[in-house]
């Protein structure tokens, strides 16, 4: 079965970033390293053949205890109106260096989604205009969707500021 042209293009243009690709029920995922992630998105968005103009979602996976190369993966879902097709990019982020470049300058909708990933997983997005917490309270400490965060918290639900 022929692979989708996006996979071949990314393999050819970013050989040092490409890790592997997966397909599940017709949807493809490309696992890449995080270093040139911005260039990959710029290519996918601006190349005449693809024109991935819509960023559907940004989310994150914590691979703690799951044999993955790195601990985290930031997952980007893209959609192209031109070809009516979808692609998923997983950017591997190591535990020691939880930094990745922001894609806000490509898609404005990335702003709040990156803030959510920062808030809940502690991934830092370089170049984000206002990287602050979006869901948890401003004085919250820690990133609660990491798999090593205790489910019942560290006393947040007993001790919090009361508005007077």
């Amino acid at each position: 079965m022929n692979k989708r042209p996006e996979i071949e293009e990314i393999k050819a243009r970013f050989p040092e970033s490409y890790v592997r690709d997966e397909e599940f029920r017709g949807d493809i995922s490309i696992v890449v390293r995080k270093e040139r992630i911005f260039d990959i998105f710029k290519f996918l968005k601006e190349d005449e053949n693809f024109l991935y103009d819509y960023l559907v979602d940004i989310t994150c996976i914590d691979y703690l205890k799951l044999n993955e190369i790195e601990r985290f993966a930031v997952v980007y879902h893209l959609y192209t109106h031109k070809n009516n097709s979808r692609i998923r990019i997983k950017a591997l982020v190591p535990e020691k260096d939880t930094v990745i470049s922001s894609v806000c300058s490509l898609w404005k909708g990335a702003n709040w989604m990156e803030r959510e990933v920062f808030d809940l997983f502690g991934i830092e997005f370089i170049g984000h205009p206002d990287l602050s917490r979006i869901l948890t309270p401003d004085d919250f400490i820690g990133h609660p969707l990491r798999k090593d965060y205790p489910l019942k918290g560290r006393g947040e639900r007993e001790n919090f500021k009361v508005v007077k």
């Binding site: 948890t136 609660p144 965060y149 205790p150 489910l151 019942k152 918290g153 560290r154 947040e156 639900r157």
Partner: peptide, 8 residues
């Protein structure tokens, strides 16, 4: 919801 975010 016996979790970190919810008042019990």
């Amino acid at each position: 919801f016996d979790t970190y975010t919810l008042v019990q």
